[in-house]
Design a protein around this nucleic acid. Structure first.
Ligand SMILES: [Zn+2]
Ligand SMILES: [Zn+2]
Ligand SMILES: [Zn+2]
Ligand SMILES: [Zn+2]
Lengths: 146, 146
DNA sequence: TACAAACCCTATAGTTACTATAGAGTCAAG
DNA sequence: CTTGACTCTATAGTAACTATAGGGTTTGTA
């Protein structure tokens, strides 16, 4: 049961380059190699990669995932840290949602300001973007993910 | 009325390096220089930077902002594009919110799965992260911003 | 006038999680 | 034996900054 990187990619819905990237980042262990130097993966890799992708689909960062994998790798430990990590992640998501909702209210307000005046100079939207002093340092803090 | 970069930073709630970065990116025009080669800013710069920061606080990308500034810079144009741009941005935000809410439901489900079993091996959270095949390619697409 | 603190300058590398590219080797089918 | 699909490594690019190194300028004060 040894598959090549392309098959692993198909099974996990993950690009080939991304798999190599995870290896370089230490999330996936280095696999065996064929005579021609191709990577050869087994069951354990498949499962681990699915775990990683699942976590990514939940918008966890690689470092959060690294931490979870680390816990998973010594199964005798107490699982309290898993809970802590998950809880923290949920809170981040909640904060991000509420920031975005506030931001959306603001955008919708702004949209109302263009009464179809039709010249950029008179456009209430651009004026609104210049005038309003609603914000101290409130840019949404978001992560990159793909 | 010429101020230095540090004062501009204070007025706009924006870091000095970020101002220099905006200049390099062509969002802020190159300012005059003092004898000692310090940047000297005037009213127009202050207003323009506030505009930029306001847009950033609404999570617009620099390229969206560049487009808005471009429109603002020829005031005789029709403002239809401003509306289009804003509308598109609002939709992005909405999509991001609904993706995050779905993701949060998933995370909360997961949280329930740890019945306090206390050993990582038996933890329902980690198992849930391994088993579940809820997702094809559903990672939240988000932007970076600060 | 001398010195230090606070400010400013440029250039370069690092961040996150990838994506894209170049240039080359491997393998199976025809 | 050649074509095509696949794989390899190494490097650069993405977005919007942040951090660092190594210097110059201004300001206050002793
Ligand atoms: Zn308008
Ligand atoms: Zn505002
Ligand atoms: Zn548990
Ligand atoms: Zn799932």
């Amino acid at each position: 049961m040894e598959i090549r990187i392309g098959d692993l990619a198909k099974r996990s819905g993950c690009e080939v380059v991304t798999i190599r990237y995870y290896e370089k980042e230490g999330l996936l262990p280095k696999p065996a190699r064929s005579g021609g130097n191709f990577r050869l993966y087994g069951e354990a890799h498949i499962e681990r990669l699915q775990f990683i992708r699942h976590c990514r689909s939940l918008d966890m960062t690689l470092s959060e995932i690294r931490a979870l994998l680390g816990l998973r790798d010594n199964p005798m430990q107490d699982c309290g840290e898993v809970n802590t990590l998950l809880e923290a992640h949920i809170q981040q998501v909640e904060m991000r949602v509420s920031a975005l909702l506030q931001l959306k209210r603001h955008l919708v307000d702004l949209r109302e300001k263009c009464s179809g005046s039709r010249s950029v100079e008179a456009c209430g939207i651009l004026q609104g973007l210049g005038n309003c002093n609603c914000h101290g340092e409130s840019a949404t803090k978001s992560q990159t993910s793909g």
